[in-house]
Design a protein around this nucleic acid. Structure first.
Length: 333
DNA sequence: ACCTGTCAAGTCTGG
DNA sequence: CCAGACTTGACAGGT
Protein backbone atom coordinates (compact mmCIF):
# COMPACT_ATOMS: atom_id res chain seq x y z
CA UNK A 1 0.00 0.00 0.00
CA UNK A 2 1.38 3.35 -1.10
CA UNK A 3 0.76 6.03 1.54
CA UNK A 4 1.16 9.74 0.93
CA UNK A 5 1.06 12.21 3.82
CA UNK A 6 -0.11 15.80 3.83
CA UNK A 7 -0.93 18.62 6.22
CA UNK A 8 -3.44 21.38 6.78
CA UNK A 9 -3.49 25.01 5.66
CA UNK A 10 -0.41 26.56 7.27
CA UNK A 11 3.27 25.80 7.73
CA UNK A 12 5.34 26.20 10.87
CA UNK A 13 8.50 25.72 8.81
CA UNK A 14 7.93 28.52 6.29
CA UNK A 15 7.96 31.87 8.07
CA UNK A 16 5.43 34.62 7.49
CA UNK A 17 3.36 32.63 5.05
CA UNK A 18 -0.12 32.74 6.56
CA UNK A 19 -2.84 31.89 4.01
CA UNK A 20 -5.50 33.03 6.48
CA UNK A 21 -4.93 36.73 7.07
CA UNK A 22 -8.23 38.42 7.70
CA UNK A 23 -10.01 41.64 8.63
CA UNK A 24 -12.69 42.02 11.25
CA UNK A 25 -16.06 43.47 10.37
CA UNK A 26 -15.42 46.17 12.96
CA UNK A 27 -12.34 47.45 11.18
CA UNK A 28 -13.99 47.08 7.79
CA UNK A 29 -16.76 49.41 8.94
CA UNK A 30 -14.27 51.88 10.35
CA UNK A 31 -13.02 52.65 6.86
CA UNK A 32 -15.25 55.46 5.56
CA UNK A 33 -14.62 54.80 1.88
CA UNK A 34 -16.34 51.45 1.30
CA UNK A 35 -14.64 50.97 -2.06
CA UNK A 36 -11.26 51.44 -0.40
CA UNK A 37 -12.22 48.96 2.31
CA UNK A 38 -13.18 46.39 -0.31
CA UNK A 39 -9.91 46.93 -2.13
CA UNK A 40 -8.13 46.26 1.16
CA UNK A 41 -10.04 42.98 1.54
CA UNK A 42 -8.99 42.05 -1.96
CA UNK A 43 -5.37 42.89 -1.18
CA UNK A 44 -5.46 40.63 1.87
CA UNK A 45 -7.05 37.86 -0.21
CA UNK A 46 -4.38 38.23 -2.90
CA UNK A 47 -1.74 37.97 -0.18
CA UNK A 48 -3.37 34.79 1.18
CA UNK A 49 -3.40 33.30 -2.31
CA UNK A 50 0.21 34.31 -2.84
CA UNK A 51 1.20 32.63 0.44
CA UNK A 52 -0.79 29.56 -0.55
CA UNK A 53 1.31 29.30 -3.69
CA UNK A 54 4.46 29.73 -1.60
CA UNK A 55 3.32 26.85 0.60
CA UNK A 56 2.64 24.70 -2.45
CA UNK A 57 6.18 25.39 -3.68
CA UNK A 58 7.50 24.44 -0.24
CA UNK A 59 5.38 21.28 -0.44
CA UNK A 60 6.81 20.43 -3.82
CA UNK A 61 10.33 20.90 -2.49
CA UNK A 62 9.52 18.51 0.36
CA UNK A 63 7.73 16.07 -1.97
CA UNK A 64 4.44 16.69 -0.14
CA UNK A 65 1.56 15.99 -2.52
CA UNK A 66 -1.41 16.26 -0.17
CA UNK A 67 -2.57 19.61 1.17
CA UNK A 68 -5.71 21.26 2.52
CA UNK A 69 -6.33 24.90 1.67
CA UNK A 70 -7.32 27.40 4.31
CA UNK A 71 -11.04 28.19 4.14
CA UNK A 72 -10.21 31.78 5.03
CA UNK A 73 -8.49 32.71 1.77
CA UNK A 74 -10.95 35.56 1.14
CA UNK A 75 -11.82 37.48 4.31
CA UNK A 76 -15.53 38.11 4.92
CA UNK A 77 -16.30 36.42 1.59
CA UNK A 78 -19.75 35.17 2.59
CA UNK A 79 -20.66 37.87 5.06
CA UNK A 80 -24.25 39.20 4.86
CA UNK A 81 -23.12 42.81 4.59
CA UNK A 82 -20.89 42.07 1.60
CA UNK A 83 -23.34 40.19 -0.60
CA UNK A 84 -22.91 42.78 -3.36
CA UNK A 85 -19.15 42.19 -3.46
CA UNK A 86 -17.76 39.72 -6.00
CA UNK A 87 -14.10 39.21 -5.07
CA UNK A 88 -13.37 36.76 -7.87
CA UNK A 89 -12.68 39.03 -10.86
CA UNK A 90 -9.83 40.75 -9.01
CA UNK A 91 -8.39 37.42 -7.85
CA UNK A 92 -8.87 35.31 -10.95
CA UNK A 93 -5.22 35.12 -11.99
CA UNK A 94 -4.07 34.36 -8.44
CA UNK A 95 -6.54 31.49 -8.15
CA UNK A 96 -5.57 30.22 -11.60
CA UNK A 97 -1.86 30.24 -10.69
CA UNK A 98 -2.58 28.00 -7.69
CA UNK A 99 -4.68 25.60 -9.75
CA UNK A 100 -2.05 25.44 -12.48
CA UNK A 101 0.65 24.59 -9.96
CA UNK A 102 -1.53 21.89 -8.38
CA UNK A 103 -2.23 20.31 -11.76
CA UNK A 104 1.36 20.56 -13.02
CA UNK A 105 2.60 18.71 -9.97
CA UNK A 106 -0.23 16.19 -9.58
CA UNK A 107 -1.11 17.32 -6.07
CA UNK A 108 -4.22 16.36 -4.15
CA UNK A 109 -5.92 19.36 -2.54
CA UNK A 110 -9.09 19.96 -0.58
CA UNK A 111 -11.02 22.37 1.60
CA UNK A 112 -12.69 21.80 4.95
CA UNK A 113 -15.55 24.31 5.36
CA UNK A 114 -15.74 24.81 9.11
CA UNK A 115 -18.38 23.89 11.65
CA UNK A 116 -20.82 26.61 10.60
CA UNK A 117 -21.65 24.55 7.53
CA UNK A 118 -24.37 22.26 8.88
CA UNK A 119 -26.66 20.46 6.46
CA UNK A 120 -28.44 18.56 9.27
CA UNK A 121 -29.84 21.80 10.69
CA UNK A 122 -33.58 22.27 11.14
CA UNK A 123 -33.14 26.04 10.79
CA UNK A 124 -33.87 27.47 7.37
CA UNK A 125 -31.41 30.33 7.75
CA UNK A 126 -28.55 28.08 8.85
CA UNK A 127 -29.21 25.83 5.86
CA UNK A 128 -29.18 28.84 3.52
CA UNK A 129 -25.86 30.04 4.94
CA UNK A 130 -24.41 26.54 4.74
CA UNK A 131 -25.38 26.24 1.11
CA UNK A 132 -23.87 29.65 0.42
CA UNK A 133 -20.62 28.58 2.10
CA UNK A 134 -20.45 25.39 0.05
CA UNK A 135 -21.10 27.39 -3.11
CA UNK A 136 -18.26 29.70 -2.12
CA UNK A 137 -15.84 26.80 -1.68
CA UNK A 138 -16.79 25.31 -5.04
CA UNK A 139 -16.33 28.72 -6.64
CA UNK A 140 -12.80 28.88 -5.29
CA UNK A 141 -12.02 25.45 -6.72
CA UNK A 142 -13.59 26.48 -10.03
CA UNK A 143 -11.50 29.65 -10.04
CA UNK A 144 -8.44 27.45 -9.62
CA UNK A 145 -9.61 25.40 -12.57
CA UNK A 146 -9.68 22.24 -10.44
CA UNK A 147 -12.21 19.52 -11.21
CA UNK A 148 -14.24 17.35 -8.84
CA UNK A 149 -11.17 15.40 -7.72
CA UNK A 150 -10.62 18.34 -5.34
CA UNK A 151 -13.12 17.84 -2.52
CA UNK A 152 -14.81 19.83 0.22
CA UNK A 153 -14.83 17.76 3.37
CA UNK A 154 -17.58 18.39 5.95
CA UNK A 155 -19.23 16.79 8.96
CA UNK A 156 -22.88 15.75 9.15
CA UNK A 157 -23.57 18.29 11.88
CA UNK A 158 -25.70 18.50 15.02
CA UNK A 159 -28.11 15.85 16.32
CA UNK A 160 -30.71 18.14 17.93
CA UNK A 161 -31.72 15.39 20.34
CA UNK A 162 -32.68 12.98 17.57
CA UNK A 163 -29.77 11.67 15.54
CA UNK A 164 -31.70 9.51 13.06
CA UNK A 165 -33.92 12.39 12.01
CA UNK A 166 -30.94 14.74 11.85
CA UNK A 167 -29.17 12.27 9.54
CA UNK A 168 -32.30 12.04 7.41
CA UNK A 169 -32.50 15.83 7.23
CA UNK A 170 -28.88 15.92 6.12
CA UNK A 171 -29.69 13.51 3.31
CA UNK A 172 -32.74 15.48 2.20
CA UNK A 173 -30.80 18.73 2.21
CA UNK A 174 -27.90 17.17 0.38
CA UNK A 175 -30.24 16.13 -2.42
CA UNK A 176 -31.24 19.79 -2.85
CA UNK A 177 -27.67 20.78 -3.67
CA UNK A 178 -26.42 21.38 -7.19
CA UNK A 179 -24.58 18.48 -8.74
CA UNK A 180 -21.23 20.32 -8.79
CA UNK A 181 -21.42 20.79 -5.03
CA UNK A 182 -22.50 17.19 -4.47
CA UNK A 183 -19.67 15.66 -6.47
CA UNK A 184 -17.06 17.66 -4.59
CA UNK A 185 -18.17 16.56 -1.14
CA UNK A 186 -16.69 14.11 1.32
CA UNK A 187 -18.12 13.27 4.75
CA UNK A 188 -16.05 12.77 7.89
CA UNK A 189 -16.96 11.08 11.17
CA UNK A 190 -16.78 13.56 14.05
CA UNK A 191 -15.58 13.30 17.65
CA UNK A 192 -18.85 14.03 19.45
CA UNK A 193 -21.92 13.18 17.42
CA UNK A 194 -21.86 11.18 14.19
CA UNK A 195 -19.52 8.21 14.64
CA UNK A 196 -18.09 5.93 11.96
CA UNK A 197 -21.05 3.54 11.47
CA UNK A 198 -23.50 6.46 11.38
CA UNK A 199 -21.42 8.54 8.98
CA UNK A 200 -20.80 5.52 6.80
CA UNK A 201 -24.54 4.83 6.52
CA UNK A 202 -25.18 8.35 5.25
CA UNK A 203 -22.31 8.04 2.77
CA UNK A 204 -23.75 4.76 1.48
CA UNK A 205 -27.24 6.24 1.06
CA UNK A 206 -25.91 9.23 -0.88
CA UNK A 207 -23.00 7.67 -2.74
CA UNK A 208 -20.58 9.99 -0.96
CA UNK A 209 -16.96 9.12 -0.16
CA UNK A 210 -16.15 8.89 3.53
CA UNK A 211 -13.05 10.35 5.12
CA UNK A 212 -12.20 8.26 8.16
CA UNK A 213 -10.70 10.24 11.05
CA UNK A 214 -9.03 7.66 13.25
CA UNK A 215 -8.60 10.07 16.18
CA UNK A 216 -12.31 10.91 16.12
CA UNK A 217 -13.04 7.20 15.83
CA UNK A 218 -10.98 6.57 18.94
CA UNK A 219 -13.00 9.04 21.05
CA UNK A 220 -16.40 8.40 19.45
CA UNK A 221 -17.23 4.80 18.55
CA UNK A 222 -19.63 1.93 19.12
CA UNK A 223 -16.96 -0.48 20.29
CA UNK A 224 -15.64 -1.26 16.81
CA UNK A 225 -11.94 -1.32 15.99
CA UNK A 226 -10.73 1.50 13.73
CA UNK A 227 -10.20 -0.88 10.81
CA UNK A 228 -13.37 -2.95 11.24
CA UNK A 229 -15.46 -0.93 8.79
CA UNK A 230 -12.63 -0.13 6.41
CA UNK A 231 -13.80 -2.46 3.59
CA UNK A 232 -17.11 -0.59 3.50
CA UNK A 233 -15.45 2.81 3.84
CA UNK A 234 -13.10 1.91 1.02
CA UNK A 235 -16.12 1.02 -1.14
CA UNK A 236 -17.57 4.51 -0.71
CA UNK A 237 -14.61 5.77 -2.73
CA UNK A 238 -15.75 3.79 -5.74
CA UNK A 239 -19.06 5.61 -6.16
CA UNK A 240 -19.70 7.84 -9.21
CA UNK A 241 -19.70 10.97 -7.03
CA UNK A 242 -16.41 10.01 -5.38
CA UNK A 243 -14.75 9.31 -8.71
CA UNK A 244 -16.27 12.21 -10.66
CA UNK A 245 -13.61 13.55 -13.08
CA UNK A 246 -11.07 10.87 -12.07
CA UNK A 247 -9.48 9.02 -14.97
CA UNK A 248 -10.45 5.34 -14.91
CA UNK A 249 -6.83 4.23 -14.87
CA UNK A 250 -5.96 6.56 -11.98
CA UNK A 251 -8.83 6.55 -9.47
CA UNK A 252 -8.86 9.00 -6.56
CA UNK A 253 -7.49 7.11 -3.54
CA UNK A 254 -9.34 7.12 -0.22
CA UNK A 255 -8.22 9.60 2.39
CA UNK A 256 -8.03 9.41 6.16
CA UNK A 257 -7.26 11.95 8.87
CA UNK A 258 -4.84 11.32 11.69
CA UNK A 259 -3.96 13.18 14.86
CA UNK A 260 -3.02 12.27 18.41
CA UNK A 261 -4.66 13.28 21.69
CA UNK A 262 -3.21 16.41 23.25
CA UNK A 263 -3.16 14.88 26.74
CA UNK A 264 -4.98 12.45 29.04
CA UNK A 265 -7.05 15.34 30.30
CA UNK A 266 -7.88 16.57 26.83
CA UNK A 267 -8.19 13.54 24.61
CA UNK A 268 -10.04 15.41 21.85
CA UNK A 269 -7.46 18.15 21.50
CA UNK A 270 -4.70 17.80 18.94
CA UNK A 271 -1.12 17.16 20.07
CA UNK A 272 1.91 18.83 18.51
CA UNK A 273 2.89 15.67 16.67
CA UNK A 274 1.54 12.28 15.64
CA UNK A 275 2.11 9.04 17.54
CA UNK A 276 3.43 6.49 15.12
CA UNK A 277 2.24 3.22 16.73
CA UNK A 278 -1.57 3.55 16.56
CA UNK A 279 -1.34 4.88 13.01
CA UNK A 280 0.99 2.12 11.89
CA UNK A 281 -1.25 -0.48 13.47
CA UNK A 282 -4.19 0.86 11.48
CA UNK A 283 -2.21 1.03 8.24
CA UNK A 284 -1.05 -2.57 8.63
CA UNK A 285 -4.61 -3.77 9.11
CA UNK A 286 -5.76 -2.27 5.82
CA UNK A 287 -2.57 -2.54 3.75
CA UNK A 288 -3.37 -5.85 2.06
CA UNK A 289 -6.67 -4.65 0.56
CA UNK A 290 -5.84 -1.01 -0.14
CA UNK A 291 -3.44 -0.20 -2.98
CA UNK A 292 -3.18 3.50 -2.24
CA UNK A 293 -4.06 5.85 0.62
CA UNK A 294 -3.69 9.55 1.37
CA UNK A 295 -3.26 10.58 5.00
CA UNK A 296 -3.99 14.08 6.20
CA UNK A 297 -2.03 14.94 9.32
CA UNK A 298 -3.99 17.26 11.61
CA UNK A 299 -1.35 18.04 14.20
CA UNK A 300 -0.79 21.32 15.95
CA UNK A 301 2.73 21.56 14.50
CA UNK A 302 1.42 21.09 10.97
CA UNK A 303 4.18 20.23 8.44
CA UNK A 304 6.80 19.85 11.17
CA UNK A 305 4.71 16.99 12.57
CA UNK A 306 4.74 15.42 9.12
CA UNK A 307 8.53 15.61 8.91
CA UNK A 308 8.89 14.10 12.39
CA UNK A 309 6.41 11.32 11.65
CA UNK A 310 8.41 10.39 8.55
CA UNK A 311 11.57 10.26 10.65
CA UNK A 312 9.87 7.96 13.13
CA UNK A 313 8.57 5.74 10.33
CA UNK A 314 12.13 5.32 9.04
CA UNK A 315 12.87 3.25 12.15
CA UNK A 316 10.34 0.66 10.99
CA UNK A 317 12.33 -0.13 7.88
CA UNK A 318 12.92 -3.73 8.97
CA UNK A 319 9.24 -4.15 9.76
CA UNK A 320 7.68 -3.57 6.38
CA UNK A 321 7.76 0.21 6.13
CA UNK A 322 9.53 1.19 2.93
CA UNK A 323 10.61 4.80 2.63
CA UNK A 324 9.86 6.28 -0.81
CA UNK A 325 10.41 10.01 -0.34
CA UNK A 326 10.02 12.71 2.33
CA UNK A 327 6.25 12.26 2.48
CA UNK A 328 5.60 8.82 1.04
CA UNK A 329 6.00 5.27 2.29
CA UNK A 330 4.97 1.82 1.18
CA UNK A 331 3.43 -0.37 3.87
CA UNK A 332 4.04 -4.05 3.19
CA UNK A 333 1.32 -6.22 4.70
C1' DA B 1 8.32 43.08 20.48
C1' DC B 2 4.86 41.14 23.33
C1' DC B 3 0.29 40.54 25.72
C1' DT B 4 -4.87 40.10 26.06
C1' DG B 5 -9.58 40.17 24.87
C1' DT B 6 -12.27 39.58 20.71
C1' DC B 7 -13.85 37.71 16.30
C1' DA B 8 -19.56 36.58 11.35
C1' DA B 9 -21.08 32.30 11.37
C1' DG B 10 -23.43 26.73 15.24
C1' DT B 11 -24.58 23.51 18.72
C1' DC B 12 -24.87 21.75 23.27
C1' DT B 13 -25.28 22.17 28.21
C1' DG B 14 -26.74 24.00 32.28
C1' DG B 15 -29.06 27.44 34.78
C1' DC C 1 -34.77 31.67 27.07
C1' DC C 2 -30.01 32.96 27.60
C1' DA C 3 -24.99 32.78 28.86
C1' DG C 4 -20.94 30.19 28.47
C1' DA C 5 -18.06 26.38 26.64
C1' DC C 6 -16.14 24.42 22.79
C1' DT C 7 -11.78 25.54 19.56
C1' DT C 8 -8.36 28.14 16.64
C1' DG C 9 -5.55 31.47 14.15
C1' DA C 10 -5.34 36.02 13.74
C1' DC C 11 -6.80 40.85 14.62
C1' DA C 12 -6.77 45.13 17.37
C1' DG C 13 -5.55 47.81 20.79
C1' DG C 14 -2.80 48.19 24.47
C1' DT C 15 1.93 48.50 26.84
Amino acid sequence: MLVRFGYVAMSVLVENASPSRTMTMASFKKIDDREAAIRKLERIAAENLHNTLRLLRHNKGSHIHVYRFSSKLIPLATHEDLMDWDPFPALQSDFAAIGDFVKENGMRVSFHPDHFTVLSTPREEVLRNSMRDLRHHVRMLDAMGLNATAKNNIHIGGAYGDKPSAALRFEENFLKLDRDIQERMTLENDDKTFNVPETLAVCQHLGLPMVLDIHHQWVNNEGEQPWDLWPDIWKTWQSPLAQADSPADRPLPPKIHVSSPKSEKDIRGHADGVEVEPLLSFLRHIAADTPELDVMIEAKRKDEALVQLMQKLAFYHEEGVEWVDESTVIIHP
